[in-house]
Amino acid sequence: MTLNSTLEGKIAFITGGTRGIGWATAKLFACKGATIILNSISDESVLHARVEELQTKFGVKCDSFSYDVGDREAVKECYAAIFKRFKRLDILVNNAGVLNSSLLGMITSENIDHTINTNVKGMLYNMQSASRLMTRNHSGSIINLSSIMGRFGAEGQTVYAGSKAAVIGMSCSAAKELAAQNIRVNVVAPGFIDTEMANEIPPEKFQERIESIKMNRIGTPDEVANVIYFFASDLSTYVTGQVLGVDGGMVI
């Protein structure tokens, strides 16, 4: 039996794709031959530079859409455009997310709305539209990014942890609903990963986190991308509705 572990011929859409885990995933997928569609809300020039880099380095087709994943109309327009340009979608990596730390008594309405709009509604809108494109081909893989905090919580992260727990619930439901269409939905729950988000925390907290990790080091975006790739590829054709932690043994 030969395993097809490349992504050649596959169309992959990665939200929040210009930095951190999203960008590491985009590079890995491009290296494996997928056509890459990137989304980001950041500066369009950054998005275009990323697209150019993928095309030059890996010789793959690449496209991009700059929009806020929490904007339902923008999501609809994006998927209509994907449909027009590519006629199909094989992989969605629902990665875009925000983290705003606040202790319970100091959480603002703006923080709640912004976090829920991006991390919960945004993920739901993208799953909804992606699954419709995937239904046409009776196949597809959706990988939703949660967090170790979505499973176990953390001080100062009530809103973020709540939004990431919602990702797990939504994903399990969608996995049950879409399995009959041969569309798989899985969750990757990173622990402490070397991204801009991690570098924003104070040095003493940073050290505290490292000490809580059994492998005694921070993870890299590439290590998370490898797990996302597993779920995206044919290596996991019989796996759906699973939550896989990538946390160096932070929680065992």
Binding site: A80, R132, T135, R136
Partner: peptide
């Protein structure tokens, strides 16, 4: 509801459109 979504996919393919939710 399951066949409804199959029907939507079939119609979208047939007429090359993408319908609003």
């Amino acid at each position: 509801s399951i066949r409804h979504m199959n029907l939507v996919a079939e119609i979208e393919d047939l007429f090359d459109i993408m319908m609003d939710t």
